[in-house]
Design a protein around this nucleic acid. Structure first.
Length: 307
RNA sequence: GGAGAGGUAGCGAAGUGGCUAAACGCGACUGACUGUAACUCAGUUCCUUAGGGUUCGGCAGUUCGAAUCUGCCCCUCUCCA
């Protein structure tokens, strides 16, 4: 099986720095696995690797969508898979870096998204007048197994399960059951971590740094341009918290605090994902000696390559 | 110095004799996750060896029973001097 390196971890631990070091060390390229670094016009708020960094190491799937575009998991998987295969041809080990758990898992496991039709919001409008409980009952009727895995309040997921049945004539539960739930490649998952308290400090500091590097300007430009739009990209942490500030509902300081808080929460949710959804080899980051972590990762990768 | 308001769990805030280890909100923690995922949703949140134990500023009282009533003390805020 072809080998792949996947670097995961919460926001702000240093995934980008590690991926650059590994890509240089093993002469390979990086595929972005982050749902927000794909967008143009956002650079600071999503902590995208710099142009310089991207010049030194080839990065794929960064900066390739417009704000108005919406990224979806199936097309991400399709694009990234093409790149993975072309790197294999060049005898390179792809390095996938990112914090978006579902995107990574769908890419690297046998999620057979192509078998399904894409989402169609308009067709779901017929359920607008139904309560959560009513929708849930409908799902119980067509796909009891799927309903058992969902909470009635989780309207979004209940609707999607219903949509799968409506549009594809297959139950979500059957669709999932026919998959193997195994990785498609020989993957080394390297996770970066540090003590929670410390990570939160790093996250807070990073937000302050973003502000010093022009976050407010970036966000202001976006706001003036896309204020009334409902794009997926505008859900980004680091943007959405400023909307009440632009609307004069909160002051700047509170908006920045909110960005910090949401970033911390995001980090926590990422841990839940990476701790429970994939087999991650964790490396503890020493913020005073990041090289140590790089070396540890390098020796992990060496062992992995020679297996 | 005088007048008033108030001190409840990490924070905000209900509760004004038993149904109260104490609503609700926030925060925090844990978990789920197959086409919006930086989304959406759920659970836990005084301590506990799970038998109980200790709480509503402090102390003392009233009562079968007190966060709730009484007395004194401490602290905070507003207004007047």
């Amino acid at each position: 099986m072809n080998k792949i390196i996947c670097i995961v971890g919460p926001t702000g631990v240093g995934k980008t720095a590690l991926s650059l070091a590994l890509a240089k060390q093993f002469n390979t390229e990086i595929i972005n696995g982050d749902a927000f670094q794909v967008y143009q016009e956002m650079n600071i708020l999503n902590a995208k690797p710099t142009k310089e960094e991207r010049r030194i190491v080839k990065h794929h799937l960064v900066d390739y969508l417009k704000i108005s575009d919406s990224l979806d998991i199936a097309s991400f998987k399709e694009e990234a898979t093409k790149i993975i295969n072309s790197l294999f041809k060049d005898n390179k080990i792809p390095i996938i870096v990112g914090g978006s758990g579902l995107y990574l898992k769908s890419l690297l496991y046998d999620y057979q998204l192509n078998d399904l039709k894409g989402r169609n919001k308009d067709k779901l409008k017929k359920y607008d007048n139904y309560t959560n409980e009513e929708i849930f009952k409908l799902l119980e009727e067509v796909d009891l197994d799927a309903s058992k895995k969902l909470h009635p309040n989780n309207r979004k997921r209940v609707l999607r399960a219903l949509e799968i049945f409506d549009e594809n004539n297959i139950k979500k539960s059957d669709f999932i059951n026919k998959q193997n739930h195994q990785p498609l490649y020989d993957i080394l998952f390297i996770g970066l971590t540090m003590e929670r308290e410390l990570l939160y400090q790093c996250i807070n500091n990073r937000v302050d740094k973003m502000v010093n590097n022009g976050l407010i300007d970036e966000v202001t430009t976006l706001y003036h341009k896309y204020n009334n739009c409902n794009y997926q990209a505008l859900q980004a942490i680091g943007y959405k918290e400023f909307i009440p500030y632009f609307n004069n509902e909160i002051n700047l300081e509170d908006a920045i605090d909110k960005v910090k808080q949401n970033s911390r929460r995001y980090a926590k949710k990422q841990y839940t994902w990476f701790n429970n959804q994939m087999e991650v080899k964790w490396i503890n980051v020493d913020i005073n000696d990041f090289k140590k972590c790089i070396n540890e990762a390098i020796s992990l990768v060496r062992g992995f390559i020679n297996e």
